[in-house]
Write a protein that binds this DNA or RNA. Sequence first.
DNA 1: TTAATTAATGAACATTTATTCATTATAAAA
DNA 2: TTTTATAATGAATAAATGTTCATTAATTAA
Lengths: 212, 212
Amino acid sequence: MIDSGKGDKEREKLPRTEEQFEAMRIATRDKIHSSAIKLFAKKGFAATSVKDIAEGAGISIGLMYRHYKKKEDLFYELVTYATKGLERLVERFQSEESPVELIQQFTLEILNDLDKDDEYAQFHMLMNQSLTMENQSLQLQNLNKISEELIQQTTRLIEKGQKLGQFREGSPSELALFYFASIQGMTMFKLLKNEQFVTPNIKIVTAFLMKD
Amino acid sequence: MIDSGKGDKEREKLPRTEEQFEAMRIATRDKIHSSAIKLFAKKGFAATSVKDIAEGAGISIGLMYRHYKKKEDLFYELVTYATKGLERLVERFQSEESPVELIQQFTLEILNDLDKDDEYAQFHMLMNQSLTMENQSLQLQNLNKISEELIQQTTRLIEKGQKLGQFREGSPSELALFYFASIQGMTMFKLLKNEQFVTPNIKIVTAFLMKD
DNA sequence: TTAATTAATGAACATTTATTCATTATAAAA
DNA sequence: TTTTATAATGAATAAATGTTCATTAATTAA
């Protein structure tokens, strides 16, 4: 971060180049991230210990603290990533494309991700875990705001789809809520059962919305 | 519990009758239960402190410990209640009634409960929280077993309904999983949003299963 | 080899939270 | 009013977990 433009002359005493150090740091940060998201998503913030995170990452506790001053900071960084993902989705849902197309596309992506690996499921559960924390840090407030925006956008999208005759009738906000609730539920099942989880066919998931 | 049939002669020294003491104990147990389930369901086992439970119940920490030797014991007692509820449901789903009727009835009950109060939602989330704990106490093993039985029974019920031409086609196990996933999701939303949560119409919830 | 610099370690320390227990409150009977 | 049995309290203690920091490891240039 700090003046990476410093001239070559001045780093003659470094045992490694700055690039090498940077690569090392990124590598351990990655290890921390993937260990932490796994644990936070599955067990929640309070139930995961820094010892577990460090063990999962294959590093020492001390090294963890060189990268994050507090367990909370690590958590919030992951929350921030997740929030960015949500923001992209909100934007996507604001596009002028056909509502059916947008919903189908997104649903398909999720089902694929759930099927393939659990990265999506982990981020989704992380957000959930976050929303149940009463602690009102800026990061959590922001996540809250964005997730409400997403529901609003989806409601509007459904309304639009209904006017175009693409979607079934019914209260748009109830439909939007049910849509995310079902995704939420599948996500939990995936994390809970993992191998045993069979990703449902997209027809099942969108039947409540789509006309036959 | 212990020899409540003891003769009236022998309790002449009691400041209150045994019935009175019993009533007091039941009253505080009730207070503990409703405080604890609320907190455990919302925040999970690790994130709820005994201090919070005691405060929520309006009693001292010491009194809590007179009723439960460990925080875990209280949790397991609640898990046991929840498990009994599941067992009743498994039995119900084994009956010879029409699959459509059974599913409709049960779904309606849940939606009503979600609408009315959060008792159901709380027990549901408690089970969920339990299933993510790696600790394998007898109570948790049992809950696991019963919840798998429930999914199996539901799968069979759907199969039966399909043969009777009552349900849409599609993999019965995928359909069963999706059913519980969507209920799960709604439950979480209810606990998360509470007042803001609008219970969906039953048609929305069962559309994926029912022929038009 | 030695010096230099930063990554990495884990035992020591701090803080939080679960649990215990000596003490007090209550209410009925003597 | 005193006695008595049990409910109820909360400060003291124990255990668990988060955080720090003095120390070591690794690597390259001199």
